[in-house]
Computed example of a mutant assay.
Amino acid sequence: MSDADKVFAGSIPGIYDTYFVPLIFSDFADDIARRVAALSPSALLETAAGTGAVTRAMAAALPHHFRYVATDLNEPMLAIAAQRQAGDPRISWRQADASALPFDDAEFDVVCCQFGAMFFPDRVKAYAEARRVLKPNGTFVFNVWDRIEENVFAHEVTMALGKLFPDDPPRFMARTPHGYHDKAVIKADLEGAGFRDISIETRPALSRAPTAEQVAFAYCQGTPLRSEIEARDASKFQAATDAVAEVIRTRHGSGPVEAKIQALVITARP
Rank of each mutant, 00 (worst) to 15 (best):
M1A: 10
D3V: 10
D3Q: 11
D5C: 06
D5H: 06
I12M: 12
P13K: 06
G14F: 03
I15D: 06
F20M: 13
P22L: 07
L23T: 13
L23H: 05
L23Y: 06
S26T: 08
D27L: 07
A38H: 11
L39W: 12
S40F: 15
S40V: 05
S40D: 06
L44D: 07
L45K: 11
A53G: 04
A53K: 04
R56Q: 11
A57C: 00
M58G: 14
A59K: 05
A59F: 01
A59Q: 08
A60H: 06
P63Q: 10
H65I: 02
A70G: 06
D72V: 04
N74L: 07
N74W: 02
E75Q: 05
P76N: 13
P76T: 07
M77L: 15
Q83Y: 03
R84K: 03
S92P: 14
A96N: 02
A96V: 04
D97A: 11
D97Q: 07
S99M: 10
F103W: 07
V110Q: 04
V111Y: 10
Q114V: 06
M118Q: 07
V124H: 11
K125W: 10
A126D: 05
A126T: 13
A130I: 04
A130W: 04
R132Q: 14
G138I: 00
G138Q: 02
F140Q: 01
V141H: 03
N143V: 05
D146I: 00
R147W: 01
I148E: 03
I148A: 00
E149I: 00
E150I: 00
F153G: 02
F153R: 01
A154V: 00
E156A: 10
T158A: 06
L161A: 15
L164R: 14
F165E: 02
D168I: 12
P170T: 11
F172D: 01
M173D: 01
R175V: 03
P177Y: 07
P177D: 09
D182H: 05
K183E: 15
V185I: 09
K187A: 14
E191K: 15
F195N: 15
R196W: 12
R196P: 01
D197Q: 12
I198C: 08
S199L: 12
E201R: 08
P204L: 14
S207A: 15
R208E: 09
T211W: 10
Q214R: 11
A216K: 00
C220K: 10
G222D: 12
P224T: 11
P224M: 08
R226P: 09
S227T: 11
S227F: 13
E228G: 07
E228K: 15
E228M: 09
A231W: 08
S235I: 14
A243V: 09
A243R: 13
A245M: 02
I248Q: 02
T250R: 15
P256D: 13
P256C: 15
E258L: 05
Q262L: 13
A263C: 13
T267D: 07
P270A: 12
